[in-house]
């Protein structure tokens, strides 16, 4: 294992801002794995720390294929994690809305440019990502539909789902999107959590990455298990929205099978605790996302469901 400095910026009243990479193996730049980009991405940081530890052990016992190099960047944004702020501490900009970056631009543009300069030369790009709404996801691999996506390749992770996302204008400045535009096969991996550590899905993610790397001839050891992934497109997901605000009590969790008409949650008045609304599933399917905050606003998508039959399989 070798450490390299991707970027170091001096600051006036804080220790220098540093992005470190950890390199394993020598040769073709095969895969770059990126962890936390935002200050609340503890799970993403944790997963990449597990990867670094396991890759170091693997390398020591010759488990990396000849002529393959793996790069892991556990954290693109130590400043925000240390300050417990989701976005950039000084101006609240989001590094994952700055790609491909600009090395003469503003601070977060420079950070994005420094990371992208390293990451874009790799054949595969894997990012541990988070969603802006707090909640629990079914673990999945997400790919943007740029016309360059390769969903069949995403099946190799053996995650339960591969989600194809149609990018909207604001997605065009993300790492995943720009990786694809620069000819890197890019995958965003979502585990169940963001600002809490979930050991089970973290280890599932590590296994998924190792399984993928083995199928691409980068790691020697085969990782048994995994799922025959289902492919889902984001427009096919059914949303369940609240029609009032209040305490939010879900009665079903991410991964549960549900039937049309099944009760999914109660919303209760925050003063009287009276029942204001019962949310029910509009379709038969599987709960893909469940919001996990105690209070909800009106008009909030608190569940996303994969309708029965929306999944596709490529064999």
């Amino acid at each position: 294992m070798r450490e390299e400095m991707v970027m170091e910026l001096p600051a006036i009243y804080r220790d220098a801002f540093r992005i470190r990479s950890f390199l394993f193996g020598e040769g073709e730049k095969s895969v770059c794995i990126v962890g936390a980009q935002r200050g609340n991405e503890y799970q993403q940081l944790y997963v990449t720390s597990l990867l670094v530890r396991r890759l170091r052990d693997l390398e020591e016992r010759g488990g990396i294929c000849q002529g393959k190099q793996i790069c892991v960047v556990p954290c693109v944004n130590p400043y925000s994690i240390n300050a417990k702020k989701r976005f950039w501490t000084a101006d609240n900009t989001d590094i994952n809305r700055m790609y491909p970056g600009y090395d003469l631009g503003e601070t977060t543009q420079r950070i994005a440019a420094a990371l992208f300069d390293v990451a874009k030369v790799y054949r595969y790009g894997i990012q541990f990502a988070s969603f802006y709404m707090p909640g629990r996801f079914l673990p999945h691999v997400r790919i943007m539909k740029t016309g360059l996506e390769d969903p069949e390749l995403a099946l190799k992770f053996g995650f339960p789902y591969v989600v194809l996302h149609v990018p909207r204008p604001f997605d065009t400045t993300t790492l995943n999107y720009n990786w694809q535009i620069w000819d890197t096969k890019a995958f965003s991996l979502y585990t169940t959590e963001t600002n809490h550590i979930d050991e089970t899905s973290a280890r599932q993610a590590v296994d998924g990455v190792f399984r993928f790397l083995h199928t691409q001839g980068i790691l020697k050891d085969r990782i048994p298990g995994g799922y025959f992934s289902e492919i889902v497109e984001t427009p096919d997901l059914a949303s369940v929205r609240t029609s009032c605000a209040g305490f939010f009590f879900p009665t079903a969790g991410a991964g549960d099978r549900v039937t049309a008409g099944q009760k999914l949650a109660e919303i209760r008045d925050t003063y009287t605790n009276e029942l204001k609304e019962e949310l029910v599933s509009p379709v038969d399917g599987r709960l893909f996302f469940v919001r996990n905050e105690p209070l909800t606003y009106q008009a909030t998508a608190v569940f996303k469901i994969i309708p029965q039959g929306a999944e596709k399989r490529i064999r």
Binding site: A245, G246, Y271, Y297, Q298, A299
Partner: peptide, 10 residues
Amino acid sequence: SVELPVDERL
């Protein structure tokens, strides 16, 4: 206009 959790509308 949307309802907020505690005695307020946005």
